[in-house]
Amino acid sequence: MWPDFGGASIVNLMSDVVRARSGRADGSGLRDVDVAGWREARTVVLLVLDGVGMAQLDLLPEDAFLRRHCATALTSVFPSTTATAITTFMTAQPPAVHGLTGWHVRCTEPGLDGQVLAILPVTPRGGGRLSCSPDEALARVCRVPSVYQGLSGGARIVSPADIAFSPFNLRHGAGAQCVGYEGLDGLFETLDAALDEPVPPGYVHAYWPDFDHFAHMRGCASDSAREVLRAADSAIAAWVQRTAGRDVLLLVTADHGFIDAPADRLLEIENFPAIAACLEGPLSGERRAVFVHLKPGMASAFERALGDLEHACRPWPSADLLRDGRFGPGEPHPRLRERIGDYTLEMKSDWTLRDTLPNERAFRLVGVHGGTSEAEMMVPLAVVYA
């Protein structure tokens, strides 16, 4: 399943959100959602629940708040992962335009010299060092402005305290006030405080990461993941109840969904020496959507060696995915072609693929995302007027 940029993706959602706050959005809006009244709300709150895809709503009781108020299902972006999708929420642009193509991004900008960066913490793979500050690195890598400047009523970004003022958040939050919170209760106390101001902000982007953490570490259907999601659902319901009559439009969605990946379906690139010999540098992207950069003249050898992985992945020339619009519409980021490499390996079923550099710690993720399965790609949209 690929993103539906024709009216059912988080990109289309953001176009409607921006227009509801009198901002400029070039893309088409949502196809199957009535957004006519969105402009009338005093405050629009977009709450992003990291990792809570449509499949994860099955962890909730049938009468749960999110299940009762889910208006439609949307697709995420490709890769279906936080770094790529959160950048879409903060820029209202698809990955083709903003250019951040996963947790690991190969950066060929001057001074970065092809390093693969974990883009949210802005750290190089394999213990390497940046030749500049994280702020300077992001300034070179990220060319697309945030959505917040010029929105009517001003904007607020509500994030966990440990990332609220990170270089990534501050850069993509330009034009908004960033506020940190501690814990689930702190999230809704911070939202309450915003609404209690003499002039509440016109737009609030709020982010909650806890389900994603437990899903990665213990599995997306684990007891701990289920418990934390049910707590969030109850907290949202309680907040909406006490917010009644305050002219708030609450939109709840997610950046991606999840699947669990069995340990015996984790492939190590080092165990495929014929493939590894073709590579020019580390893998990038995600374990479920892998970008491969080849040494010059190694395309034929790589294609032959891929026979060892035919059971686990579908290889695509990355240029074909770009041509077919899999990264979205719009003028491509000037470095996009370099970032997605020569081939994209779309992992099948519940297979994952990784490499581990000499100075990296090998660790297993129980729950994963980034791929094109329905469970990873489909996210809910709950619409609630309070």
Rank of each mutant, 00 (worst) to 15 (best):
H69C: 00
W38T: 02
S76V: 08
A71V: 01
H98Q: 10
R31F: 10
A25W: 09
R19W: 14
I86F: 14
R21D: 07
M90T: 05
S28C: 13
V52S: 00
D16W: 11
G29I: 01
W38N: 06
G99A: 15
D32K: 12
D26G: 14
H98R: 10
A71S: 11
A92T: 11
L46Y: 03
P95H: 10
A20R: 03
D16Y: 09
A25E: 04
V97C: 10
F78D: 03
F65R: 04
R67C: 01
A92W: 07
F78K: 03
D32N: 14
F78S: 11
P94S: 08
R21S: 10
A36F: 09
T88Y: 04
C70A: 06
G53C: 05
D34C: 06
V17Y: 06
A55C: 12
A41G: 13
G51A: 13
T81L: 07
S80N: 06
V11D: 12
G37F: 06
R68C: 02
A71P: 08
A96F: 04
A20F: 05
T72D: 00
H69P: 02
G37N: 12
H69T: 00
V44E: 09
P95G: 13
A25S: 13
P61D: 13
A85Y: 08
D26K: 15
T72S: 00
D16T: 09
T81P: 04
A55E: 13
C70Q: 02
A20H: 03
L66I: 09
T82K: 05
D16R: 09
H69S: 00
G99F: 11
L49T: 02
F65H: 02
T81F: 04
P95D: 12
R39F: 05
T84P: 05
N12P: 07
T84G: 03
L66Q: 02
R24D: 14
A55H: 10
T91P: 06
L66F: 05
M14W: 07
A55Y: 07
V33P: 01
L30D: 06
D58T: 11
F65V: 07
I10R: 05
I10P: 03
T84L: 05
T91C: 07
S15P: 03
F89G: 04
V35F: 12
R21C: 12
Q93K: 14
A36K: 15
R19V: 15
A92S: 10
V11R: 08
V97Q: 12
D34Q: 11
D63A: 09
L47I: 04
T75Y: 01
T82H: 03
V45C: 05
A55N: 10
Q93T: 15
T91L: 07
D26E: 15
D26R: 15
R42K: 14
V77Y: 01
V11P: 02
L46Q: 01
T82N: 05
G27E: 13
F65Y: 09
D34K: 07
R67H: 01
S28H: 12
G99S: 13
M14P: 06
R39G: 15
L49N: 01
A73S: 04
A73K: 00
T91I: 05
G27L: 14
L59P: 01
H69G: 00
V45W: 02
R67Q: 03
Q56R: 07
M54P: 00
V77A: 04
R21M: 09
L49Q: 02
L13I: 10
L46P: 01
M90Y: 05
E62C: 10
V35I: 13
L59T: 01
L30E: 04
P61T: 08
A36D: 14
V35R: 11
R24V: 15
R21V: 05
